[in-house]
């Protein structure tokens, strides 16, 4: 199963980026064999509005079946909710650590957005 992590780094030692919509890129990890690919967040980093919405679409299109994130705004959360993809809340830690937590079933799905929307 593929899982998406917002990161600033580029491998499993990278640390989770606390910003979802404005993360540099996403690490899409296959939890079955620990392989990963990188997905650049491109122009969304500087988008003036709707960065979270665009990033959510990017993650969904990558085939990921879950997102691991520290935070998620209301609009991005809605996109994931409608797509049926859970947002698993996690502290800022290395992706390798978070992957282990995920496999141990220690990451819980958020039931709603946890911060106010950003227009900017």
């Amino acid at each position: 199963m593929k899982i998406a992590f917002p990161v600033a780094g580029s491998d499993l030692s990278a640390v989770l980026d606390a910003r979802f919509g404005r993360a540099q890129r996403f690490l899409i990890v296959d939890s079955d064999n620990d392989t990963f690919e990188l997905l650049e967040n491109g122009s969304n980093v500087d988008a003036s509005q709707g960065a979270g919405i665009q990033s959510a679409q990017l993650v969904i299109a990558s085939g990921a079946k879950a997102l691991v994130s520290s935070h998620c705004g209301p609009k991005a959360f809605k996109v994931f909710q409608v797509a049926g993809i859970p947002v698993l809340q996690a502290p800022v830690a290395s992706i390798a650590q978070l992957l282990a937590k995920f496999k141990a079933g220690e990451l819980e799905a958020m039931t709603g957005p946890d911060n106010a929307g950003h227009m900017g």
Binding site: A47, G50, A51, Q57, I60, A61, V79, Q81, V82
Partner: peptide, 24 residues
């Protein structure tokens, strides 16, 4: 439509289809 919109007001939510954000 998603590609056209300059205001990021539309989104494709996988199997959930197309979403509209009226406030954007």
């Amino acid at each position: 439509c998603v590609d056209f919109c300059q205001y990021n007001a539309l989104a494709l939510a996988g199997s959930g289809g197309l979403l509209v954000f009226p406030e954007l």
